[in-house]
């Protein structure tokens, strides 16, 4: 038995990757939940918005790399992020003007907007593939690790190494900052409060002199920023491939719904719940168990509950369980 090594292995293979993934999901789910709360529909184009934002960031990163601009040891992508956000904001606000606004004026049923967002999804998906192609793109640079496994072993003398990738550390820190900023904005500023008011009661917001179009624009702006940051961090941490962003739609929706749709706090909780369960269920526990159990109990096989190919099944099952027992999600969401 060796609890210390078990703990290090657990941190290294489960806790850190799951926290990073959870932060990415939470940022994605926040975007979905904001649109659901304020524009009142589930945006099927969100995964592709993330892909678009990440793509622009990558293109600008490449340009910077060519020019030799760098902020090492941090990845250059961080410097390119504002450009990605600006381009994505322009895209989604342009889309709102050209597409969604018309349906708001017609007071269209929310489900009409869902179908509209499918069309937008197709267009954005095509756009991203058209510009950057369908292949894997790498754009991370700077230091690869905050702590490498070897350094950690030398430092502590433990058998098990702990490696923290820069991208994982960066993801978690960025997510904390972004979430804190978002909550401050929603709860403390006049514009943020007007967004909550609009989400709560559109008619009364109108009677209070809140301009709906302005609320919608600000929402899209925030969503563009959240989507770009989430997309870029995911790309840095794993890799950028347009199709994987489309596939992220399920865990992101699941996160938002599990947490309680329309509730930002819920989106974050949901993101982490989904991420931790995905990693926990698909991780091969052999190493951790070998360290933490008496020798005679050590597992023979990999001790993996499900193959990683079924990670989406996990988010789905969690979702169903939560909805069966708590139809409004973990935190009180809007209806359901």
């Amino acid at each position: 038995m060796d609890f210390l090594n078990a703990l290090v292995a657990l941190t290294n293979f489960v806790i850190i990757p799951a926290t990073a993934y959870g932060s990415q999901l939470a940022l994605g789910a926040l975007g979905v939940t904001l649109i659901y709360g304020i524009l009142r529909f589930s945006n099927f184009a969100h995964g592709d918005t993330m892909a678009f934002g990440a793509m622009v960031t990558i293109l600008v990163t490449w340009a910077f790399q060519k020019m030799g601009v760098s902020i090492a040891p941090l990845p250059t992508a961080l410097l390119a992020l504002p450009f990605g956000i600006a381009a994505t904001a322009a895209l989604v606000i342009g889309t709102d003007r050209a597409v969604y606004r018309f349906y708001r004026e017609k007071k269209a049923a929310p489900v009409t907007l869902v179908i509209v967002s499918m069309g937008v999804m197709f267009v954005m998906n095509g756009l991203v593939r058209f510009i950057i192609g369908v292949d894997d793109q790498r754009f991370g640079d700077g230091a690869r690790f905050i702590i490498s496994a070897r350094d950690f072993k030398e430092m502590t003398g433990l058998r098990e190494g702990l490696a923290i990738k820069t991208s994982a550390g960066l993801t978690i820190i960025t997510a904390v900052i972004v979430v804190a900023a978002l909550f401050w904005f929603l709860n403390k500023t006049r514009t943020g409060k007007s967004m909550r008011a609009y989400s709560d009661n559109e008619d009364l917001a109108l009677l209070s002199g809140i301009n709906p179009e302005r609320v919608v624009m600000v929402t899209w702006l925030i969503v563009a920023a959240l989507a770009t940051i989430a997309g870029t961090l995911y790309g840095l941490d794993k890799s950028f491939k347009p199709f994987t962003y489309f596939q992220l739609l399920l865990p992101i929706f699941a996160s938002a719904i599990v947490g309680g749709l329309g509730n930002p706090l819920g989106a974050i909780a949901g993101g982490f719940l989904i991420a931790y369960s995905e990693v926990a269920v698909t991780y091969a526990w052999k190493k951790v168990l070998t360290y933490s159990l008496p020798e005679s109990f050590a597992p023979e096989g990999l001790a993996q509950l499900l193959s990683t190919d079924y990670k989406h099944a996990v988010s789905f099952v969690i979702l169903i369980i939560v909805l069966l027992f708590k139809p409004t999600g973990l935190f009180k969401g809007k209806s359901v």
Partner: peptide
């Protein structure tokens, strides 16, 4: 030339959006 294959997604999206708007 390589990207021409992705035109179909773009086109399908546009077709859907146009029909939804003008002939819901």
């Amino acid at each position: 030339l390589d990207s021409a294959a992705h035109m179909r997604l773009l086109t399908m999206g546009l077709v859907l959006l146009i029909v939804l708007r003008f002939s819901p």
